[in-house]
């Protein structure tokens, strides 16, 4: 970036076509976003296949894989109960996809020439869709298991009769807001974190480019900040994946067990 050029922290979220010159509004358009989704998929598969040696005494890799599945198994069975194992595949899918996408997005692949890192979870089309899938499961399980009794989810026990309609509406709204908050949370975390990294990364470059003592000082400070935020991004990426998985399990628990 030439000195004095405008900082454009939004550029990193642009979806670019691969294999064609122009974006086309078709499902089969291959893009950098699709490419990084496939990379995330490949990473997950390679990692998980490393844990299928089925040794009685596990190696480090198998131990890591077993830790991951055991952790998610815990999340689902503790939230939902013994029925939870049925929902483990989706909780696993959501957790690993968000976690790996967040972490790959935080890796400094930008220093490799011609590599354009892209964080797929910074697109609300992605996180929103995953949230909608979680809610489709919740609604499907709820109505399939309980029929219209599923609506008693909106009437907590011990509500005074006169308040019932008002509580019903409030609970219904809070329920309907869940898919938005669920999908927005990981998106916002990645979006904000990457803007921060981009802006302060530009400060580093521009500080050096200014050739002044003050510029070098700002550059060093910004570099330290970028390192700190980079580490924070890894933590946030893991937390967001965990929150999404945990909330999905808790919402499914509502549908399975009502209150």
């Amino acid at each position: 970036m030439p000195a004095g050029a405008k900082i454009d922290p939004m550029h990193q979220f642009t979806i670019a076509p691969i294999g064609s010159d122009q974006l086309a509004a078709t499902p089969f358009q291959f893009t950098n976003s699709a490419l990084w989704m496939l990379i995330v998929f490949a990473v997950i598969v390679v990692f998980m296949l490393g844990g299928t040696k089925r040794q009685l005494v596990p190696g480090r890799w198998q131990m890591a894989v077993e830790y991951l599945t055991g952790f998610l198994d815990n999340v689902t069975t503790q939230s939902i109960g013994p029925e939870g194992r049925k929902y483990l595949p989706w909780v696993f899918t959501a957790f690993t996809f968000i976690l790996v996408a967040n972490w790959i997005g935080a890796m400094p692949f930008g220093i490799v020439p011609a590599a354009h890192p892209f964080t797929v979870t910074s697109q609300f089309t992605v996180t929103g869709t995953m949230s909608i899938i979680s809610f489709a499961i919740v609604l499907g399980v709820g109505f399939w298991k309980h029929g219209l009794k599923f609506f008693t989810l909106f009437t907590p026990h011990g509500t005074p009769k006169p308040l019932l309609p008002a509580i019903f509406v409030v609970e219904m709204i809070s329920f309907l807001v869940r898919p938005f908050s669920l999908g927005l949370r990981p998106f916002i975390a990645m979006f904000a974190g990457h803007i921060l990294l981009d802006v302060f990364g530009n400060f580093v470059v521009q500080g050096i480019g200014s050739h002044t003592a003050l510029g070098y000082g700002v550059s060093a400070l910004a570099f330290a900040f970028v390192m700190f935020v980079g580490a924070l991004e890894l933590l946030v990426g893991a937390i967001q994946a965990f929150v999404f998985a945990l909330l999905t399990a808790l919402y499914i628990n509502d549908a399975v067990n009502l209150h």
Binding site: P89, V126, T129
Partner: peptide, 25 residues
């Protein structure tokens, strides 16, 4: 982009779900 985003996302999530979530896990 929404069509291609959904298409590739559902493809990848479906692959993870069936191949990893129901296969390997």
């Amino acid at each position: 982009v929404y069509q291609s985003q959904w298409f590739w996302l559902l493809l990848v999530l479906g692959a993870i779900y069936f191949f990893v979530g129901r296969g390997i896990v």
